[in-house]
Design a protein around this nucleic acid. Structure first.
Length: 456
RNA sequence: GUGGUUGUAGCUCAGCUGGUUAGAGCGCUGGAUUGUGGUUCCAGAGGUCGCCGGUUCGAACCCGGUCUUCCACCCCA
């Protein structure tokens, strides 16, 4: 019995039209990555588990797709472990490889492994799929593409400035207006935790603060209390709940609040440099928004934190990034600072689709279809087709001598703009009947004229 | 991982507290029209009602499980 076909949850097939649109986005991103001096690398779709495990927190470990060992792997597991039903420990024994969870950790591995071949600062970009064993949701898949640009080996804040401009340029090129690039700094968050006397609860504190726009002031306070953050501390962060104004105003107030924290003050100065510089250079399509509640993806960030949100659509962040001072340290190479950003291809696709921002021209169908009237006519046609293709014009011959109605319908449904009819009459006269499928008008033309009309 | 939701023709969906042979629109195939697509008309094909089990004289409908969809939480692009 034939089995019912299907694909795993959270994965998708892409039709020709969808691939064309995805390629359009990728080409825009790639073009600008290169324009900013980044070079492409690629890494394997799966890594050794040890490379990935423990890099994304417990939650991350749970979401990593593990690959079962080959062979009779259970034979190597001792009975005690097997009967203990300890999945976590057993996994370590029967799975030694795992699918890539993001592009940053494999990049860190790459840098360390190839440290003698690369020149610092090293600017690389990477456009590849990643996998997460997450439960699917709107804009959330188990297989999706990330488009990352990172630079390692430079602590300069000019990198942060350039990344803001890179975001702006790409979204501008995609016609996506009203994008908000939210920026924050891990040192500022750390400083806040310090001055309110909750330095050891930094993660709990920032995770709760990050939810402000989602669960509101009361919700955040409630969560902080639940995590054991004192009333007095919450009282001190009160100003952050209504933190409005221009970047300069916010920075001045932050500067005041964090005066006693050396780290916090440093963070404010970093933000001030980035905001002032962007203020001076200006942005095209995006707005830079200093958001002290931004804290996501905190795990390895040490300086700037970025997150990008599109306006007018209910969609999670379409990009994110930040600075990590010692990412390669875990692989044995200390003191290399990195900073980078990521574009979420699949979410950008959904946003462009929802806002109707894909250009008409992205789908790449043939310019013309030659109607097949039989052997001799097809041979005559294929010669013209060879010539047209040499001129870079996408044309094709209907493969069978089917009824004209069927051939016309085929061209119509595939939105091929022209059909070319070559029958006995045309062959004798040495010309071609070119039909415009939109207007319905048709005329006899020479091969030269055909080439001119179809070339665009 | 937690809670909810969805699944009926290729697609979008009807289908009455459980009652003959499960319907519509669009699409598809053929014809009206043997060198002309889109419009119109005619005819036709196409469904293990997600899957497995249970209750019942009888299940698309009720119950359990499972898979899938979408949504919220967690977390994140």
């Amino acid at each position: 019995m034939a089995q019912k076909p299907g694909i795993p949850k959270g994965t998708r097939d892409f039709s020709p039209a969808e691939v064309a649109k995805r390629n359009y986005i990728i080409s825009v991103i790639r073009k600008h990555f290169e324009l900013f001096g980044f070079q492409p690398i690629e890494t394997p779709s799966f890594e050794n588990s040890s490379t990935l495990m423990g890099k994304y927190g417990d939650e991350g470990d749970r979401l990593i797709f593990k690959i079962l060992n080959s062979g009779d792997f259970l034979r190597k597991v001792d009975d005690a472990l097997y009967t203990s039903k300890d999945s976590t420990r057993l996994t370590g024994k029967i799975s030694e490889k795992a699918l890539r969870y993001d592009l940053t950790v494999p990049f860190a591995r790459y840098v360390v492994q190839h440290q003698n071949e690369i020149d610092l600062p090293f600017k690389r970009y990477q456009i590849q799929p990643v996998w997460r064993a997450d439960r699917p949701q709107k804009g959330r898949f188990r297989e999706f593409y990330q488009c990352d640009a990172d630079v390692v080996g430079s602590q300069s804040l000019w990198q942060e400035v350039e990344f803001v401009q890179l975001y702006d340029t790409v979204f501008s090129a995609l016609g996506l207006k009203g994008v908000t690039i939210k920026i924050n700094n891990r040192k500022v968050l750390s400083g806040i935790a310090e001055v309110i006397g909750e330095k050891d609860k930094l993660i709990d504190f920032t995770v709760a603060l990050d939810k402000l726009d989602k669960i509101g002031e009361e919700g955040v306070k409630k969560e902080m209390l639940e995590k054991g953050i004192s009333e007095a501390a919450i009282e001190k962060v009160q100003p952050l709940f209504r933190f409005t104004g221009t970047a300069v105003e916010k920075l001045d107030r932050l500067s005041e609040l964090l005066g006693s924290s050396e780290e916090g003050t440093k963070g404010v100065e970093e933000l001030r440099f980035i905001c002032n510089t962007i203020e001076a250079t200006g942005l095209e399509a995006a707005t830079l928004d200093l958001d002290v509640t931004l804290a996501r993806g905190l795990n390895y960030y040490t300086g700037a934190i970025f997150e990008v949100a599109a306006s007018g659509v209910a969609m999670g962040s379409i990009g994110g990034g930040g600075r990590y001072d010692d990412l390669t340290g875990i692989f044995g190479l200390k003191g290399i600072s990195g900073v980078g950003i990521s574009f979420g291809l699949d979410r950008i696709y959904l946003v462009l689709e929802e806002l109707g921002l894909f250009p008409e021209t992205v789908t790449s169908s043939s310019r013309a279809l030659f109607i097949n009237f039989g052997e001799a006519e097809a041979l005559y046609s294929i010669k013209a087709i060879q010539s047209l293709r040499r001129s870079g014009i996408k044309v094709e011959l209907y493969p069978d001598n089917a009824k004209m109605k069927k051939q016309m319908q085929y061209a119509d449904k595939r939105s091929i703009p022209f059909t070319i009819l070559v029958g006995e009459d045309e062959m004798n006269k040495g010309h071609y009947t070119l039909k415009n499928m939109q207007t319905g008008e048709q005329k006899a033309v020479s091969l030269k004229e055909l080439t001119e009309v179809l070339a665009v």
